[in-house]
């Protein structure tokens, strides 16, 4: 299992355990974590699964994927260099312990 910690905008932390191949978005949905909507289900057609990867984990999660940049332009909250669409972060062994921060709003 791969542990992921979601830090809400108010600072509250929720831990979840996912499997290889889950995405940070799908894990959040399955665990009922507020703050990630994932309206399009992972087709990279909305920007409602926006998250900020914690600085310590930027290396493990890697760069944005092709097309992600375009969709982030539609994000409801501020986009910074650590912004990702969480549907595009597929869990790997190296991500065990991953911390992501959630934006104030997704729509």
């Amino acid at each position: 299992m791969i542990k992921v910690t979601y830090v809400a905008h108010d600072g509250s932390r929720t831990d979840a355990e996912g499997e290889l191949g889950d995405t940070v978005m799908s894990l959040a949905i399955n665990q009922g974590i507020d703050g990630i909507i994932g309206e399009c289900g992972g087709s990279m057609m909305c920007a409602t699964c926006h998250c900020y990867v914690d600085e310590a984990w930027v290396g493990a999660t890697g760069p944005r994927l092709d097309g992600e940049e375009d969709m982030l332009e539609s994000a409801a909250s501020e986009v910074n260099e650590r912004s990702r669409l969480s549907c595009q972060i597929k869990l790997t062994e190296e991500m065990d312990g991953l911390v992501v921060h959630l934006p104030e709003e997704q729509v």
């Binding site: 799908s26 949905i29 909507i37 994932g38 309206e39 399009c40 289900g41 992972g42 087709s43 990279m44 057609m45 909305c46």
Partner: peptide
């Protein structure tokens, strides 16, 4: 969330918004 009425993956409905 996750229903596949708009498909899924790279061919997921591009007009869904």
């Amino acid at each position: 969330v996750g229903h596949i009425a708009f498909g899924a993956g790279i061919h997921g409905c591009v007009g869904q918004n």
